[in-house]
Design a protein around this nucleic acid. Structure first.
Length: 460
RNA sequence: UCCCCUGUAGCUCAGUCGGUAGAGCAGUAGACUGUUAAUCUAUUGGUCGCAAGUUCGAGUCUUGCCGGGGGAGCCA
């Protein structure tokens, strides 16, 4: 007899005589002559109800089973005589794989997210995290599907990088040197002894590599782990996270904005259509209204405005901000919140920021003051995408590097793309976990990644 | 890294003015012929985060340390 997943059993068109299912007991209700076992196998949010009667040969053991135990059930799929479910299983044989003693931490009650974070090895067995990781899975698939349908090439950008300074944040060092017994010359470790013969780090961005490939394949994307050693303690930062970075050649800021908007709408719609049961759970229990919200976003146009326009809107808003709004200063979280949550109530794309507050590789505008940057802000999460049209003019890029205190020689390979057949191009970075957060309504980014890495925390 | 809040039973939490520890769930024992977070009866369970201080007396007040959360910065 072939085992069937619970999601298919529950979706059956009619009863069936012989079925086999396996899973974990979520809860059990006993009566004198029988027990109801609610079984979940992770294939869907719903449990299937199993009726186990005293006539079963091992009923005495079944009766003692507790929440968390793993079992296999052979029996009949029958229409349920009671309210609450269409089908249930009338057990004919119950095999016990592993009972769960009474100290199983996930009892049938509400647990706090903080407590569940401390038992990250068990939390996938809860309703909330089951839904989160099913949605995360589908979302990941949707990312690939969108790009593949649109002729993008997936690039596996390196995780270890030896480029001296990428400038996107503090880096984790990668070394095989014996740190307890390190050879120092002139006050510094001698990296010529190290594995790569030079200092190496975990990547903080695949963008530079994506740019290289875009000059060959036109449209590319990376989707991989990214590492930032910042001492960030917030609900939207991780030390290890997954980033999606498309890069398109023969394109500028307009095409980039269009891509970002189409992409977000596509993956949102994909989740609504393919995770409806889980999305209903988020809508009912985690963030009321999230489904309507996403649907409204899919059918509306993102608001696009320049940094200069954003500053003037903020100054005329009459809002009392903790940090004053001033042209030239970066937008604070409260300013971004006002724009996306209060003023427009939908995603907002802010473009053309002052060059002083953005990275060296962004295309300088004619005014010599601003660069073709874009940030996509969404309600609740804030910045979900950061990107730009890239500076493709060799001389301008070199002088921007020098202004930023970088040594152009360290980037000779990057500069080569501007030297040989340079082309206008653009791209952006999307924080995958922030997208999962936005879609599910989960408040803390640590609860949308299987095993979160944050300062002072790398358990599991 | 900075600011604020918080730490009491396995979990979620209450604990008044400083007077010696409490509920629900889970567990345990039993009842119940269809339950849906099943219900009903009884019941076990505590280094009140750690350390020091004030006091006749500290879960409660003070200080330090540690853990957790929220906000800010860095960004995705």
């Amino acid at each position: 007899m072939e085992r069937q997943l619970i999601k298919y059993l529950l979706a059956s068109a009619q009863p069936a005589d012989k079925v086999l299912l396996k899973g974990w007991i979520r809860t059990k209700r006993d009566s004198k002559e029988f027990s109801f076992l609610e079984i979940n196998d992770g294939s869907c949010m719903s449990n299937i109800q199993v009726l186990a009667e005293r006539s079963l040969s091992n009923y005495e053991e079944i009766e003692k089973l507790k929440t968390g135990s793993s079992i296999s059930v052979k029996g009949r799929l029958v229409e349920s005589p009671a309210q609450g479910q269409r089908f249930e299983i009338k057990a004919e044989e119950v095999e016990i794989y592993g009972p769960a003693p009474e100290d199983y931490p996930l009892q049938k009650k509400r647990h706090s997210m903080e407590f569940l974070r401390e038992i990250a090895h068990l939390r996938p067995r809860t309703n909330t995290f089951g839904a989160v990781f099913r949605v995360r899975n589908k979302l990941s698939f949707a990312v690939h599907e969108f790009f593949q349908k649109n002729d993008f090439l997936h690039v596996h950008s390196p995780i270890i990088t030896a480029s001296d300074c990428e400038g996107a944040g503090e880096m984790f060092q990668v070394t095989t040197l014996d740190l307890k017994n390190i050879r120092v010359s002139e006050g510094r470790p001698d990296f010529t002894d190290d594995f790569f013969g030079r200092q190496a780090n975990l990547t903080v961005s695949g963008q530079l590599e994506a740019e290289l490939f875009a000059t060959a394949f036109d449209r590319v994307y990376t989707f991989g782990p990214t590492f930032r050693a910042e001492n960030s303690n917030t609900s939207r930062h991780l030390a290890e996270f997954w980033m999606i970075e498309p890069e398109i050649a023969f394109a500028g800021l307009q095409e980039n904005m269009r891509l970002a908007e189409d992409f977000l709408k596509y993956i949102f719609r994909y989740c609504l259509e393919n995770c409806s049961e889980d999305m209903k759970f988020f809508n009912d229990r985690i963030q009321p209204g999230i489904i309507d919200n996403l649907e409204a976003i899919i059918s509306s146009e993102f608001e696009a405005l320049s940094y200069t326009e954003a500053v003037s809107i903020l100054m005329q808003s009459g809002e009392k901000f903790e940090y004053p709004v001033k042209w030239g200063a970066d937008l604070q979280s409260e300013h971004e919140r006002y724009l996306t949550e209060k003023k427009f109530g939908k995603p907002v794309i802010v473009t053309d920021y002052p060059k002083e507050i953005k990275a060296f590789y962004m295309r300088l505008n004619e005014d010599n003051k601003t660069v073709r940057a874009m940030d996509v802000l969404v309600p609740g999460v804030g910045e979900i995408i950061g990107g730009s049209e890239r500076e493709y003019r060799y001389e301008v890029l070199v002088s921007r590097m020098k202004e930023s205190g970088l040594n152009p020689e360290d980037y000779w390979w990057y500069l080569d793309t501007r030297k040989y057949g340079t082309v206008p191009h653009a791209g952006f970075g999307l924080g995958f976990e922030r997208a999962v957060q936005f879609i599910t309504g989960m408040q803390n980014i640590r609860d949308v990644i299987p095993f979160p890495r944050t300062p002072k925390n790398a358990a599991f």
